[in-house]
Design a protein around this nucleic acid. Structure first.
Lengths: 110, 110
DNA sequence: TGTATTTAATCTATAAAACAGAACATATAT
DNA sequence: ATATATGTTCTGTTTTATAGATTAAATACA
């Protein structure tokens, strides 16, 4: 079976998908990762992760219709599932809980 | 080279280490992961991660002296470095930022 | 019509992180 | 001495993460 917890990149991709409600797709996720975090992910990395998230039931996808824009291939539209939301919340809550137990020295005095 | 970002498990282990200031060690981390999250990690997984974190300069370790407890081998004591603290803060800030942009529908209505 | 351009997914291969548990080491108690 | 407790280190495997080349499908326009 697959892992019970979201990997680091899986969580990032899923957060971006959650942000876009149900109009997310591969290349957009790629761009958004860069805009939101400054980090460059390749389309290959994003796609592999999307496949994995779908297998785990954390997202659902289907091919969009023809665009009214310039041109190009149909998008694979992505939306987060309830299980995906739960997974994000669980991950967040776990870390919030741990941060509360870390002493203040974390805010390093120079 | 290694990855620029903390992996999911790396972050968890580093949070536990931060919590313990400078009295952390392998088996304790193992136990704490279970107590804090309910999740069972093996000592092998923890140790491999400690080695990785040290290579990355996010923690420092050295062997402790003889214990005054029951018995047993010396502990490898672990403490987080400034780079480690920065890494945790960066990871947290990135996610806090993303969460702020996720619509309320995340809190699912039944 | 047909060919260039744009947009985007899919495929192939590799590296890094996560995981499991056996083996080994080093204390103390008796 | 040797049993027991505590803890690290080692070996091997699976899952995630990464990169970028290739393929596909739509529109524009000559």
């Amino acid at each position: 079976m697959f892992k019970e917890y979201l990997g680091e990149f899986e969580e990032l991709v899923l957060l971006i998908i959650a942000k876009h409600e149900d109009q997310s797709y591969g290349l957009l996720i790629c761009d958004e990762i860069h805009e939101e975090t400054g980090r460059r992910a390749t389309i290959g990395a994003v796609h592999a992760t999307v496949v994995r998230l779908e297998k785990k039931g954390l997202i659902e996808t289907d091919m969009g219709g023809a665009t009214n824009e310039r041109g190009g291939r149909r998008k694979r539209l992505i939306r987060i599932t309830d299980a995906g939301k739960q997974s994000l919340l669980k991950s967040r809550d776990m870390k919030v809980n741990l941060w509360q137990k870390i002493p203040d020295l974390m805010i390093s005095k120079t």
